[in-house]
Design a protein around this nucleic acid. Structure first.
Length: 214
DNA sequence: CTCCCGATAT
DNA sequence: ATATCAGGAG
């Protein structure tokens, strides 16, 4: 059962790695703090849109202090097009405040500490720790990783936390950071939410959901 | 579970 | 018109 899943996961990793050798974090950033802000903005928004917004945003706001000092209203205008702008502005300001007060303006390097920032849960924590610091704190489970893991039969769970636990059992720790990138690239290009292109999928012959959505 | 929310593809 | 996009909090 679990051994079979593990073997299939290894095959999935092998094929996706081959198909997407250039998979990477698609959010633009030049330092860990920028990746934290970009990832908060990426909730229910395409990373393409986030990159358009952060191009100007990171020119105007360079340090946590800059987000603390600006008015809620002005920050809302600056991030408006990413959606959920009231929550996101509030979360970015609160996280920046705590970064200054408790962590000397630096992003902490453990999941436990990152989770105290507010507006930041495991998904965002894993993105920042994995991509900015190279720390394999867990497996990023976003909408793509969630959807593909279910379709591929790697999990029957529904919540991100439970799916992540299953994936940590199946995916070798050395691949924890790259696995989500491969899954996300595949989710965007082939295994779409709406109409997956099963006829073009390199995983077709080992996918329990082959043809199910087309 | 609901709510937050604009931009885009279909 | 509607579903979906590197989610998180109450």
């Amino acid at each position: 059962m679990i051994a079979d899943r593990k073997k299939r996961t290894a095959e999935i990793i092998k094929r996706l790695k081959m198909a997407y050798p250039d998979a990477h974090c698609a959010l633009n950033y030049t330092k860990p703090f920028e990746l934290l802000v970009a990832t908060i903005l990426s909730a229910q928004c395409t990373d393409e849109r986030v990159n358009i917004v952060t191009a100007d945003l990171f020119r105007k706001y360079r340090r946590p202090e800059d987000f603390v000092n600006v008015s809620q209203q002005e920050l809302e205008r600056d991030i408006h097009s990413t959606g959920f702008f009231r929550n996101k502005a509030k979360n970015i300001k609160a996280a920046s405040q705590r970064l200054i007060e408790v962590y000397g303006g630096e992003i902490p390097r453990t999941m436990e500490e990152i989770l105290t920032l507010g507006g930041v849960a495991r998904k965002t924590g894993n993105v920042v720790l994995g991509n900015a610091f190279g720390i394999a704190s867990g497996v990023v489970v976003d909408t793509h990783v969630s959807r593909l893991s279910q379709r591929l039969g790697l999990t029957e769970e529904k919540t991100p936390e439970k799916i992540e636990r299953d994936l940590q059992e199946l995916v070798p720790k050395k691949d924890w950071v790259m696995f989500p990138h491969w899954m996300i690239f595949h989710g965007r290009k082939i295994c779409n939410a709406r109409k997956p292109k099963c006829d073009e999928c390199v995983l077709a012959n080992i996918c329990p959901s082959f043809g199910l959505f087309s």
